[in-house]
Simulated scan of single mutants.
Amino acid sequence: MTELRWATFDCFGTLVDWRHGITTGLELLFPGRGAELLEIHNRIEPQVQAEKPVRRYREVLAESVRRTAAEAGLELAPDDASVLGTGLPYWPVFPDTRPALTALREAGWRIALLTNCDRDLIGETQRRLAVPIDAVVTSEDVGSYKPGHAHFERFAASFGATRDTWVHVAQSHFHDMVPAQALGIPRVWINRHGDPHDPSIADAVLPGLGDLVATVERVHGS
């Protein structure tokens, strides 16, 4: 019997354009300020996640919006804090996502998502991915957020994945590359924005998903 090979992915930032989604959502509330507020939000959100890891992601987003607006000195209507959670199911999929996932499946890989998200939100996002996903582990499932190790540990325990059968693919150096390295999981960093983090902790670095199958195969075989 052929052993299953797993490619796990972070979703938002890797497969889905979260920067566009967050910027657009904040722009709806504060026209002309979206890009500026994105940078504040990106700094605040991991703090909110770390404070209370069992907090649902919808509330993480809402609390991050509240704190982002407060730091920027902007008045936020209470009901408007839900803008990102409401809009998340419509955040755009990167153009290279569906071809890359389809090619991986055709090459015999199983695909899983290890995501800092709620079950209902990732369910809506899977509809937009339009490629079959074999397994999903959410923050709601494990009661914590990456860069904690619980997503990876739950996936390994549930599916028997080991470093010999598993490659993790993600955009976030902080949330994904660092814990995957610590756990000895082979990993591909999708550095879409040219972030100046240490590339040596990844087994391979790509600017997008265009050459993913060959890269995953190479990392898996190394």
Rank of each mutant, 00 (worst) to 15 (best):
M1H: 13
E3Q: 12
L4G: 01
T8N: 13
F12E: 00
L15D: 00
V16F: 01
W18G: 01
R19L: 09
R19N: 11
R19S: 11
G21Q: 03
G21K: 01
R33I: 01
A35C: 00
A35Y: 00
L38K: 00
H41C: 14
N42Y: 07
R43F: 04
E45Q: 15
A50L: 05
Y57A: 07
R58S: 10
V60Y: 02
V65H: 01
R67G: 08
R67A: 12
T68Y: 03
E71Y: 04
L74R: 10
E75D: 14
E75V: 15
E75L: 14
A77W: 03
S82F: 03
S82K: 13
V83D: 05
L84E: 11
G87K: 02
L88Q: 11
P89L: 01
Y90C: 07
P92V: 09
V93I: 15
F94R: 08
F94A: 11
P99C: 02
P99R: 01
A100Y: 06
A100I: 08
A107L: 05
A112D: 08
C117A: 13
R119S: 10
G123Y: 03
G123D: 11
E124A: 15
Q126L: 15
L129Q: 07
P132F: 12
D134Y: 13
V136E: 03
S144T: 15
K146W: 08
K146G: 12
F152M: 02
E153T: 14
F155P: 12
F159K: 02
G160I: 07
A161F: 05
H168T: 07
H168P: 04
V169D: 02
H173G: 02
F174W: 11
D176S: 05
M177R: 06
V178W: 04
A180D: 03
Q181F: 05
G184F: 10
P186F: 05
P186H: 09
N191A: 10
P196V: 11
D198Y: 08
P199D: 04
V205F: 03
L206G: 07
G208E: 12
G208L: 01
V213Y: 07
H220K: 00
S222A: 12
